Amino acid sequence: MDGTPARLSIVVPCYNEEAVLEETVRELTEVMNRLIHDGKVSPQSIILFVDDGSVDKTWAIIEQKTLDNPYVQGLKLSRNFGHQSALIAGLETTGEFSDCVISIDADLQDDVAAIDEFIDKYHEGCDIVYGVRDKRDTDTFFKKNTALAFYGLMRKMGVNLVPNHADYRLMSRRALHELMKYQEENIFLRGIVPLLGFKSAKVYYNRKERFAGESKYPLKKMLGFAIDGITSFSVVPIKLVTSLGFVFVLIGGFIGMYALAVWLLNHTISGWTSLILSIWVIGGMQLIAIGVIGEYIGKIFKETKNRPRYTIEWDTITEDKKVKGQVNR
């Protein structure tokens, strides 16, 4: 790397964030001013807000900020494609002309002060820097323990996740270039990024309460996100269903031998209860098995269509902003 300051892009996915957007712009602008003043990043660095089909005033605020703020640029998707697709849209857009890209959510729960350390780690030669929560004090008991259980389950299934890391990370241009080779429809960035294998580091920070607005990840979405993560990276659930099938067949064999023994000893009794329980248990397992297999078949169905992950309706990035940086890594 030469002495030219790195050109940084900060990608911020947004969905109905009008309540917090003004403060988000203010805090990220302060960070950018400080980094440029210290000579850590280029004055050509930008903050890209990706509007994921918001139905409030999010895009109107972004458009206004592009006129008032030299760093702010906007990318508007044609509809709501989901957080991961919006994030990918921002990464793909900025990856061609940035030396490094930092992704962060708009809700200001991730500590923006950690960005300074992200950049320091980048200058030390790291291509990927993970923002990792030091504590989970702001989470409810349920959310904290289910999150820890999810990370533990993924590790047991052989998925190399970084515990307590969401999508707050820095990636160099070459890391982004490799990431874009992964073209699956149901992309799970937290699992894919560690697969890249470049030199990485962790920056620990304490997560704050949401500045304003409501969480965009209620329980239903969190469960769906967890299922996507598991089924995108592991076939263990199908293997588990197969194993359970063998177990129930074995149990059935023992029950059959027990019934035969009772009949030979003339101790036959009414078996209504055991029969009904068996029907419900086996029936339930069959439905679960069909559901697990259906998840995988559904993913195959989506992948074979090869549809685009997002559609850009409008962007405010001018051609001079798209000139590639001079730092090569």
Rank of each mutant, 00 (worst) to 15 (best):
G298C: 06
P13G: 14
L87W: 10
V12R: 02
M157G: 05
D111G: 04
S278N: 10
D52Y: 02
T24P: 09
F211I: 15
L148V: 07
G224I: 00
V236Q: 07
S78I: 13
D2L: 15
P237D: 06
K202R: 00
F225D: 11
F49T: 01
Q84V: 12
T138N: 11
L87G: 06
L179Y: 14
L91D: 03
I276M: 09
E185C: 12
F97G: 05
I128W: 13
D111P: 08
D105Q: 06
E23P: 01
G224A: 06
L223W: 13
A113L: 04
K324P: 15
E96M: 14
R329A: 12
Y310R: 01
A261L: 11
Y258Q: 10
M222F: 12
K76I: 11
I317L: 08
K40R: 05
R207V: 06
I46Q: 01
A212I: 03
D137T: 10
A114N: 04
K76V: 13
V112K: 02
Y204M: 08
L250T: 13
A261D: 08
P218G: 00
I238V: 13
E63L: 05
L77A: 03
M154H: 05
N33V: 11
L260S: 04
I290P: 09
G253H: 06
I102W: 13
F211Q: 10
N160A: 10
